[in-house]
Design a protein around this nucleic acid. Sequence first.
DNA 1: ATAAAATATTTAACGTGTTAACTAGATGCT
DNA 2: AGCATCTAGTTAACACGTTAAATATTTTAT
Lengths: 155, 155
Amino acid sequence: MLPKNTRRSLPMSLLRGREAVMSRFRPMLARHNVSEQQWRVLRVLAEAGPLDASDVCERASILAPSLTRIIKTLVERQFITVGKFKDDGRRVQLSIAPPGSALIEELQPERQAIYDEIEARFGPERIEQLLDLLEALIHSQNGLGEPASAEDADA
Amino acid sequence: MLPKNTRRSLPMSLLRGREAVMSRFRPMLARHNVSEQQWRVLRVLAEAGPLDASDVCERASILAPSLTRIIKTLVERQFITVGKFKDDGRRVQLSIAPPGSALIEELQPERQAIYDEIEARFGPERIEQLLDLLEALIHSQNGLGEPASAEDADA
DNA sequence: ATAAAATATTTAACGTGTTAACTAGATGCT
DNA sequence: AGCATCTAGTTAACACGTTAAATATTTTAT
């Protein structure tokens, strides 16, 4: 059956849930003039080393046109560097630069504190349950509506 | 402990989860030239009758500046009507108009089908679990970081 | 080798998210 | 009444989401 009201629907609840969590982190990011998405790009590059733009898009859940803009501002602020691959002139290699790493390290304690408070209020077990459910949800809906890539077939 | 990697974190998982669900509805909305947010406003007004702008913002999880723009386009397309309250010259009353109701009714079967497929893939029980967890998450984080309104005190 | 198809990224255009500042109308205080 | 304060909504400015189209490069097929 359809969700009767607007409040108990998957899209709305996921939106509100995300907002509830992000509202904790937003002030920290704002103080350092970094957007949510810029921060995700920095973290991905810090975690997974140099990557091409497509990989960053997928890992940070950012669309390519957005990433193009983000790259521009992060390079201007010297948080990342860009280079081209020798064997493929189309691809761009993104790497985190020292100021970028420094920012991540600087914010680490505050991130920790915020995450701890969220966990304390919601409960560590429920966080795990929620993450498991979300992962299952994502996988359950994978590769529908899209032209279906090769991997999804019956491998 | 902090989420080690970018994938298993609450903000990212909530974002991906929402995207997994919304990607099913987006083609339907696109075919009718209605944005996600415009659609939420229409549904809220259809469900809860005439409301002022603040109520719509809260129910549809849309910020006031966005709603101002959305109102403009929905009025132009005659999906809603606006009026002022007699007893309070600041407030705006929003009502759904016949073309708006018609659109909602027209899309109802397709919405149903999409929701059914999501449910079939993910499982009805897990949807309920997820909605319960999200509700708990939202309530657990309520009224933090904000100046703390009167109601939140110790009522 | 060359044209066609595929891939990686960018650009464009429009709508929304987000914060801050602004306007207008309502409330409260003296 | 008159002034400060609060509240509802709008405007402004900038960044991102989203789709479609464009560009450049690589791969595939002939």
